[in-house]
């Protein structure tokens, strides 16, 4: 049987009294696009930040290629995590650097490329996300929201990572630009043969970029299945969330 690229067992994380993750189990098979959905504050971002090492979980196992990154020596954990590329929700481009330096930042940091060759490499990667050569010299603040997302995607794929994370990739974009970004994500992931985890509230986006889907609710994965089954699921929690029904098992705090 094929070993999962990412295997998570019993992952727990609390902030003070609030249990954000309360025993998350999740398998992501190699080359699979996993979409994680869930309400605001359900722990989606904490989940991927735990995998990438930005948040330290309280308990549980996170395996990448069968190795537990939480128990691995620091250097080995860093090596395992170096194969992860991430697209942040708001792009998180470095304001102080031009676009080309943003795109090749990881390559330069890992010494995979020399500074003299970085600009050419950036132009090459920018072309893969549909951006023209002249964008390379611009500052991130000179770009529209959609272009910033594309540059952030270019930065994430520049080092050709084996694993990619997408944190709400279509948030803040109009539906057409959202669909364009989704298409680029699918293209890039397929071309690189990467394993991906995307977290999103956007059901159309979830079905476009995901092969598999999982729903986080009350700190656990309450449902998992094929992404195409999301909208037809009979699970009451998934049904309420995907169709945006105000009434159902998910209780939202309303003040009247």
């Amino acid at each position: 049987m094929t070993q999962p690229k990412i295997r998570i067992r019993g992952l727990k994380k609390a902030f003070g009294e609030k249990k954000v993750l309360d025993g998350v189990d999740l398998d992501v098979m190699p080359g699979t696009g996993m979409v994680v959905i869930g309400g605001s504050g359900s722990g989606k971002s904490v989940l991927i930040k735990s995998i990438i090492g930005l948040v330290t979980p309280d308990a549980g196992v996170i395996e990448i290629d069968g190795e537990d990154v939480l128990k691995a020596p620091r250097g080995r954990a860093r090596e395992l995590r170096a194969q992860i590329g991430m697209l942040f929700q708001n792009g998180a481009l470095f304001d102080s650097l031009p676009v080309w330096e943003n795109v090749t930042f990881g390559l330069l940091a890992q010494k995979k490329i020399r500074r003299a060759a970085a600009r050419g490499k950036a132009i090459e990667v920018l072309a893969q996300v549909g951006l023209a050569e002249n964008v390379a010299a611009l500052s991130p603040s000179e770009l529209s929201g959609g272009m910033q997302k594309r540059v952030a995607l270019a930065r994430a794929i520049a080092s050709e990572p084996a694993i990619m994370f997408f944190d709400e990739p279509t948030t803040g974009l109009d539906p057409i630009m959202g669909a364009v970004i989704d298409e680029l994500i699918v293209d890039c992931v397929k071309r690189l043969g990467s394993t991906s985890i995307a977290i999103t509230h956007d059901m159309a986006s979830a079905q476009r970029i995901g092969d598999q889907a999982a729903m986080l609710y009350e700190g656990r994965v309450c449902w998992s299945g094929k992404a195409e089954e999301l909208m037809t699921s009979t699970d009451p929690v998934v049904d309420q969330f995907t169709h945006g029904r105000p009434h159902g098992p998910i209780k939202m705090a309303l003040r009247r």
Binding site: K49, I52, R78, R81, A92, F94, D95, F105, A109
Partner: peptide, 16 residues
């Protein structure tokens, strides 16, 4: 500003 716009987290994910 870098912290609240995730730029510091982004540095970590770029081997820095």
């Amino acid at each position: 500003t870098m912290r609240v716009t995730d730029q510091i987290d982004a540095l970590s994910t770029l081997s820095t």
